[in-house]
Structures are given as structure tokens and as C-alpha cells.
Amino acid sequence: MKYGSLKEFLDTDTTTLAKGPVALIFAEDRIELETTLRHHLELGFKAVLVFMPDAYTLPEDIAGRVIRIREDRPTGQVMIDTVNTIIEAAPGIWLYYCFNAEYLFFPFCESRNVSEMATFHMEERRYAMLTYVIDLYANDLESYPDAVSLDHAMLDKSGYYALARPDTANHNHPKERQLDFFGGLRWRYEEHIPAERRKIDRISLFMSKPDLQLRPDFTFSDEEYNTYSCEWHNNLTAAVCSFRTAKALKTNPGSTFDIRSFTWHNSVPFEWHSRQLLDLGLMEPGQWF
């Protein structure tokens, strides 16, 4: 299906947002848009909505399986506003959001689907899931000048850390069960990244509800949604494996000439499997086995 605007979709379609999980994919450009959509379709989302300009085309086999909504500016505040509009229109369902060239991985995703994971998470009285945005990058920038290659993708095996998240409303004391996470390219090339964009944590998967608002830093107005676990034990976390930062660093004139290669001594090939991310400690299975 194809809609000319989000308003047209919400006014016309009365069934898609009745049951989740639903994926919201925002196309910043054409790079790996098809593989992003295929990946999330295979994860078992009940519906995949893609926000993209009319000029972008999709193969017939994908076009028939996704809901396409025209959005000429699918980044920044427009993306935040879109997610919040859908939260208001469809309370009580699981939603997920990401950009093109980003791929969701969760524990055991090769044999279990996203609906099963969300159901288990909700049974633990958890209504949002912390995801780490793990930077991917091509191993050879001469061969892949936009830093994107699925067949030759690399990631950092170490160099990740967390800091207490200060509560400005409480004399900057640390917030309970909340941390700011750093690492990857945003850490190694921090001189090219604005301070407010250096974190790699994102609440990507969540249950919508009335009055809930996504904020520009990818946290929510409900502080419990921003916690990494409940009070009594560790919970599931997931990873969004993303070429977005590498792509931006190599297309931005202010940084592209300073970077000849993203690889370093802690780079390893990405295996496109949840086991590697679990072994590296980049996501947590919690009590789900």
C-alpha cells in the first residue's frame, strides 16, 4: 500500500496499527534501503511502515509487503514528530523505529521472532527495551567510499563504556537504572560528533500508551521506559547494527578527508548473527533462554 502522507494513512487505514509489533523505517537516503526492509520483514513484525520520498523505488516483492508513506524529510525532528503521532494514534501496541542501513538484532533472533520477544518482555512487566546502536563500517574505504558494505562489514569488539545519567531535576544525582552508553565510531571520532549525539543507547522498541512522548535524544517522557532493567533482575536488551554514523562521517565534508580508514586493532568482521553480539556483551538475554 502507498499513502501520500501520514495523515492520509491514519485517516484511511484502520487495521495496520491494531496489533504490533510494528516497525517504522525512516529512509534518509537510498543506501541499503531494500536490505533494511527485508531484514525487518524477516524478523516477524506484523507490519513494516517505510517513510520515504516518492522518488525512491522499491522492488515489487518488497513493495507488496510494506506500507509506504510519503515523507520528503524523514530525519531529525520530523522523525520524532512522526513517531509521536503514531504513538498517539495507536496506544497499546509495540513499536520499533530505525533508519535505513540499520538492522535490529536481538538474542536468538535467528530462531525466534520479534513478537515472541516482545511478549516475553511484557510478561516481565517491561514495556520498553534498551538497544545499543552498534556502528558498522566497510573494511576498505577506497572500495566503498560511502563506508557501507554488507559483505565486508566490520564492528568494534571493544571500547564501549557507560556513565551515570545525571538527573538535572535532582541536583544531578544519578538516575536510577539509567546510564549513558558510549563507544564505536561516535567515541573514536568524537571531535566530529556533537556532544549531544555521542551516546549509542536508544529506546528503539517500546509499548505505545497515551501521553507518551519520544524525545530528540531517543529517550521517553516516562522515565521507567529509559531504564536498562527492572529492579529485581537483568532484562533483555537488543542491538541496532548501523552504518549510519560511518556513512555520515564519510559524506560530511568536515570529516571525510580526515578519515582514510575506520579499521583499527579492535575491529572484527561482523558475522550478521546474534551470537557474536551476545559473546561481545553488546546485548543481554536476561532471563530469556
Rank of each mutant, 00 (worst) to 15 (best):
T219D: 03
D72S: 00
G4M: 00
I259H: 10
Y103I: 05
T119I: 13
E8K: 10
D151Q: 12
E224T: 11
N170Y: 07
E284N: 15
T82K: 02
I200F: 08
Y127V: 09
T251F: 04
V133Q: 08
A63N: 08
Y96M: 12
L278R: 14
E123M: 14
E231V: 06
C241M: 12
L141A: 02
V83W: 06
D54R: 10
T35N: 12
L136H: 01
S274C: 14
K250P: 02
A90S: 15
F289C: 14
D135M: 08
Y144N: 04
E28P: 00
E88Y: 14
K175I: 03
Y225N: 03
S274H: 15
L141M: 05
A63W: 04
T75L: 08
D140V: 03
T227L: 06
L49P: 00
P53G: 02
L41D: 07
W288T: 06
V268Q: 02
A47E: 08
D258C: 11
E32H: 02
R125I: 05
A47R: 04
I80A: 05
P145F: 01
K19G: 11
F181T: 11
L278Y: 11
V78M: 03
S204W: 09
T15W: 11
H173F: 13
I86N: 09
G64P: 07
T75Y: 04
E223M: 07
W288M: 13
M1W: 08
R215F: 07
E124C: 10
L214V: 02
Q178T: 09
L185N: 06
R125P: 01
M52L: 08
E176T: 14
K46P: 05
Q77E: 10
I80T: 09
V78S: 06
P216G: 03
L214A: 09
E223V: 11
